[in-house]
Amino acid sequence: MTKSILYVDDEPINTFLFSKMFGVSYHVITANSGQEGLDILMNNPDVKIVLSDMKMPKMDGIEFIKTARETFSEKNYMIISGFMADSRIEEALSIGLISYYMNKPFNKVEIAKNIESSLQQIK
């Protein structure tokens, strides 16, 4: 059975491209806002890996992951953003809120590697 992963980004083209890139190896579910991401997590308990964009309206990546982790603490979270890592990201990494932080544009090899090693950790 293919592993389920969730990708949250407010740009629909980004979620489309992500699905295209990783749809072959995983079951990719996408959401265009933090709220939508939380709803998907509720309905899809088999999702093990959550990737999110950082800057989104209403709820940004860190806020979304914090909220999600309160209910789904066993899942593995990471952020893909156009920004360089700032102090909030550094803190999230150091307290283990997120396990990886990656930059845009998508680096297919890096993303795949981090997803794989996260899956290994969960096992």
Binding site: N14, K20, F83, K104
Partner: peptide, 18 residues
């Protein structure tokens, strides 16, 4: 502005990969 450029840049770069 950099962020605003990186998103569409991602469209192009990921598009090329695919």
């Amino acid at each position: 502005v950099a962020h605003e450029v990186l998103n569409p840049l991602n469209f192009v770069k990921s598009g090329i990969d695919l």
